[in-house]
């Protein structure tokens, strides 16, 4: 199946190549795909560029770690206390579908125009799916599973450790995967907007300096790197959930 998929992409690139060479598309706006792909290759072997990738991934993991820890604790509390859950779960869900990213100037004002602001913004956004999925995962553990524990007179801790947690883990993990995806998106987007940090900054600089080939090559690389990253965490999820 992937062969066909790659073929679809290749055919598309070849069509663009032809359009650019015949000047059907203005070559000033769009470099030849062959050139852009070649540039991607040179960038990937270029230590400076790999440094940018490392910066972006570093910010991503920092934001994710924050969101994961806080999100799972808050999600647990919302599940533990019924009234807290009833009061704030809808609020978290509403925030999840709001344009949190647009609040970035506030983060700049408070934390400064730096990576900390980006990490904080990404974490604030990603904490929301973590909370929601943790809470819902725990709520969804079937009564029967819990009754098995009760009928064996398990202690509260054993019940949590051996039944509740493993039963909820797959859904919590899905929440974490979504959180990680969002952190990456927010980090790259903010790097681009603020022109600081790693990959996003590179895109912004390329466009500012009007380096079309670099611009397309870096956008292409971002697509490939985020896709690879997301593929990896999806695989990890499948592996963990068997």
């Amino acid at each position: 199946m992937w062969i066909v998929r790659i073929a679809v992409i290749v055919v598309f690139l070849v069509l663009v190549e032809i359009a650019v060479r015949t000047e059907l598309i203005n070559p000033f706006f769009v470099p030849r795909p062959s050139e852009a792909v070649a540039r991607m290759g040179t960038r990937l072997t270029d230590g400076e560029f790999l440094g940018l990738v490392a910066v972006t991934l570093g910010e991503t993991f920092a934001g994710f770690a924050l969101a994961a820890v806080v999100g799972m604790v808050v999600g647990f509390l919302l599940w533990r206390s019924r009234s807290l859950g009833d009061a704030f779960e809808p609020l978290v869900a509403a925030l999840f579908s709001s344009p949190i990213v647009l609040l970035y100037p506030i983060f700049l004002v408070i934390l400064g125009r730096n990576s900390t602001a980006i990490v904080a913004l990404a974490a604030v956004f990603a904490v929301l799916p973590t909370i929601l999925f943790t809470k819902q995962a725990l709520s969804a553990v079937s009564r029967t599973m819990l009754n098995v524990g009760r009928s064996l007179n398990l202690s509260a801790w054993s019940n949590f450790r051996h039944i509740l947690l493993p039963a909820a883990a797959p859904t919590i993990f899905t929440g974490l995967r979504i959180a990680l995806t969002y952190v990456l998106i927010v980090v790259v987007a903010m790097e681009y907007i603020l022109q600081i940090g790693g990959l996003g900054r590179f895109v912004s600089e390329s466009s500012l300096l009007f380096r079309a080939t670099d611009l397309y090559a870096s956008v292409g690389l971002i697509v490939i790197i985020s896709a690879a990253f997301i593929w990896a965490i999806n695989r990890l999820e499948k592996l963990v959930q068997r």
Partner: peptide, 17 residues
């Protein structure tokens, strides 16, 4: 729950993990 009493439930109750 009494230790001498075992229960088999109607719903799926095996632990998938």
């Amino acid at each position: 729950p009494h230790p001498d009493v075992g229960v088999v439930f109607q719903e799926e109750s095996t632990f998938p993990w």
